[in-house]
Design a protein around this nucleic acid. Structure first.
Lengths: 120, 120
DNA sequence: ACGATGTGCAATCATATGGTTGCACATCGT
DNA sequence: ACGATGTGCAACCATATGATTGCACATCGT
């Protein structure tokens, strides 16, 4: 995997790794495009905090914005999320293979020659 | 989704949102269970830094450890990763639906009654 | 024109994060 | 027993992160 892509994926995961940002994303998913003020309505934090989170999300490519008069509407942008999803699926499959390899390594040597060095 | 589960998922994403931790996970996936010292071998950071990252990963449930003599071996633990993968798949599907709803909303009203308020 | 509403920007703050170093402790091989 | 190797712990540091507040600026409705 290219370094750039790895960085992009890490950015997406970083953006997802915060409870406030997760709930912002859920609001955007269920309520459609909304302004920072609207998003901060039920939230426990300030509008400014929400704005900062939206900037993080936008930096990760999960969201984009558009001016609409005096309001700024933020909307979901699924591309990068798909990237992250695919990444997780690949890693998951890779882990399954790794763990299967290990399982076989252990089971195929039930009475191996001596107390040999375990290749953990 | 329960608050606790949401928190757990956020923890997993947080753990994945760091380049060093991602490469640690990749080493564990391709090289099998390894000690912190082994993992810090080609790395740009200290063993102690790797240890801290391993603790984060273990806190998120992505890894577990096991003492083996004087060594401590860390290994992948796929359960929580699967949770995160499923979460992403659900969110992704949810976004697709939301965006499809929006698309229809726009296209089904090509010459709607007057310059009605756009429900962005 | 004017007040209400929505943003943007900057300063500030507490805490978390990522990283290092130094040293004590445990365990292995010989 | 003894040196080599692998861990664990604690202190410490610079920077990032999450959040707040105050105020200026833009835009809407009437």
């Amino acid at each position: 995997m290219s370094k750039a892509r790895e960085r992009a994926v890490a950015d997406v995961f970083f953006a997802l790794g915060d409870g406030t940002r997760l709930s912002v994303l859920q609001k955007l998913g269920s309520g459609g495009a909304q302004s920072a003020t609207a998003l901060s309505d039920g939230a426990k934090v300030t509008r400014q905090a929400i704005v900062k989170h939206l900037q993080v999300l936008e930096g990760a490519g999960l969201v984009d914005h558009q001016k609409r008069g005096r309001a700024v509407l933020y909307a979901l942008k699924p591309d990068r999320l798909d990237d992250a999803r695919v990444f997780l699926e690949e890693v998951s499959a890779s882990w399954d293979r790794a763990i299967e390899r290990l399982r076989r390594l252990v089971e195929d040597l039930p009475s191996a020659p001596g107390p040999a060095k375990r290749t953990f």
